[in-house]
């Protein structure tokens, strides 16, 4: 198949991946998103397993990022956005009327497409979340959270001697890992990643991908990606979106080797996208 992208070489064997726990962390049913009159997402229902990486793939404008932003209710910040349907985290409907988005977002971390460190020192970037949520009572406790978060993000050794320098002075890949550390610092259960490597070079990307693989031991990770190779490399489950529809979902290996829907097949072989 000329022009097709061969992802089978990067797929891990089942033994390496280990059994994916099928306890669903996030359950969504019939989720629709409207931007004004425009319908951006049609009846998306999916179960996202705990402590595993689920990748959302699909062409630009397919609704994968929109759906990701429903999971921590970031779409609430867009005045014209309207969401219907149900999203449950550990069985609790996050769109119920009495849900406060502030503690909800503390439980669900997010890493954005472009690294967005605050105009503060590297230390203060990581300490920001614990500070606003009052997670540390003493300076020593805060130091500890900052260090362990930076270690989890694989950044500690690189920044431990310049914690007081601005976060924006780090390289792009380091900034993105700083943003991961910042998300990890508030001990979320879920980490949402919206194309976290699209602004990074291949080496920085590889570093983030390794990190994602380590993080899935402790966190439920949902990653939106443009790169099918990346989905194949880092995820255990993959969902394919097209024109606002969730077309197909399943174990990553199946989606890439034996997709059942012709649209999925066309996309992963490079015919649409």
């Amino acid at each position: 198949m000329p022009g097709a992208i061969d992802v089978s070489s990067v797929l891990r064997s089942g033994a390496e991946v280990g059994p994916v726990s099928m306890r669903p962390k996030i359950v969504t049913r019939d989720v629709n998103v409207f931007y004004g009159e425009k319908r951006a997402l049609n009846d998306v229902s999916i179960d996202i397993p705990e402590r595993a990486v689920t990748a959302f793939i699909g062409p630009s404008g397919c609704g994968k990022s929109t759906f990701l932003r429903c999971i921590n209710r970031m779409n609430d910040t867009i005045p014209t956005a309207r969401i219907t349907g149900r999203i449950e985290i550990d069985g609790e409907n996050i769109y119920a009327k009495d849900v406060d988005v502030v503690p909800l977002r503390a439980r669900i971390g997010m890493v954005f497409q472009k690294p967005n460190p605050f105009a503060k020192s590297a230390y203060e970037n990581v300490a920001y979340g614990p500070r606003i949520h009052g997670l540390a009572r003493t300076r020593a406790e805060l130091d500890e959270i900052v260090e362990s978060s930076l270690r989890k993000a694989g950044l500690w050794d690189e920044v431990k001697d310049r914690l007081q320098q601005p976060g924006t002075s780090l390289s792009g890949g380091q900034q993105q890992r700083l943003c991961i550390a910042r998300a990890v610092a508030v001990s979320p259960e879920v980490i949402l990643m919206d194309e976290p490597c699209s602004a990074l070079d291949p080496i920085a990307t590889a570093r983030i991908e390794e990190l994602i693989d380590e993080l899935r031991q402790n966190y439920t990770i949902v990653i939106v990606t443009h790169s099918m190779q990346q989905a194949a490399r880092v995820s255990q489950r993959t969902a394919f979106f097209h024109l606002g529809n969730l077309v197909e979902q399943g174990p990553t290996e199946e989606i890439f080797t034996t997709p059942s829907d012709p649209r999925t097949q066309n996309y992963i072989t490079g015919r649409i996208g």
Binding site: R105, A106, R107, K114, N116, Y128, I132
Partner: peptide, 18 residues
């Protein structure tokens, strides 16, 4: 100030005032 910074803060569970 880019919206990306506001989003980053809100996504960490900060209020609009914070």
């Amino acid at each position: 100030v880019p919206n990306a910074l506001r989003d980053g803060s809100l996504a960490l569970g900060a209020t609009r005032l914070e």
